[in-house]
Structure formats: C-alpha cells, structure tokens
C-alpha cells in the first residue's frame, strides 16, 4: 500500500483504483453484517480484506436464522475469516460512529 502512495499518479485508471481502496479503507473498523451462503449471519468489526473478498471480522458473533422464527442466542466467535465465495451480502452499520480504538493515521 505504501507503494501506491509513493507512485506518481499519471493514469486516470490508477486514480480510480485508489478511490476504491480509499472507500474500503473508510469502512475499516466499522460494524459489518455478512450473510453467508448457508444462511447464517455474522456481525463483527471489519478488519481486513483482499482481492478475493475474503473478509476478516473481529469480535464476531454468529446468528442463526431460525427456520420457525425463533431467534437463538448469538454465539461468540471472536476473530473470523469469511471466504469471499461464501458471502451472499454485506451490510454496514449506519448508526454508530466507527469506534475510536484505532490510531488515526
């Protein structure tokens, strides 16, 4: 990542790339809600991702989608990695500010 900031920007395509990354960077440390292919829902703090959309969530909890409407207690998982190919949808939490337990750059 440090390379990209050093690199002089000539190409508009590069600028585009940086925009995409900047957007992702803004989402870091915010709450994500990811639905997986098997119907389970994970809620946790967005920590890391890569080109294949493998997402790492911190302090993550697992919610089961009750078939008959019953909601079960969430199960605390901690640090998890969700492979990109198993992600059905991603939602971001709009209500809380990004928690300030990270350093400002």
């Amino acid at each position: 990542m440090s390379d990209s900031t050093v690199k002089p920007i000539e190409d508009p395509k590069v600028v585009m790339e940086l925009e995409g990354k900047a957007k992702l960077r803004k989402w870091l440390n915010m709450n994500f809600r990811i639905e997986m292919t098997d119907g389970r829902v994970l809620i946790g703090v967005f920590l890391c991702t890569d080109r294949d959309a493998n997402v790492i969530l911190g302090a993550c909890s697992e919610y089961l989608k009750g078939v008959d409407g019953e909601t079960e207690e969430p199960r605390v998982l901690g640090l998890v990695m969700v492979p990109g190919r198993h992600i059905v949808s991603i939602q971001i939490d709009d209500t809380t500010p990004s928690q300030k337990y990270f350093f400002d750059e």
Binding site: M1, M16, E17, L18, E19, G20, K21, K23, L24, R25, W27, L28, N29, N31, R33, I43, L47, C48, T49, D50, R51, D52, A53, I56, G84, I87, S89, I90, Q91, I92, D93, D94, T95, T96, F102, F103
Partner: peptide, 25 residues
C-alpha cells in the same frame, strides 16, 4: 443497527486491490 447494504460496492471496490494485497489498518 441501521444496516445499509454495500454488497455491490464492496465487490466492485475490492477489484482495485492487487492480487495478494491485504487491505487493513
């Protein structure tokens, strides 16, 4: 929570990452 869907955006944005590059804090 106030969930806002970002699925398509997310998948579009990650394409800007290099192969093997990690985006993280």
């Amino acid at each position: 929570y106030n969930w806002v869907d970002i699925t398509t955006d997310f998948f579009k944005n990650i394409q800007d990452l290099q192969l093997g590059e990690l985006l993280h804090d």
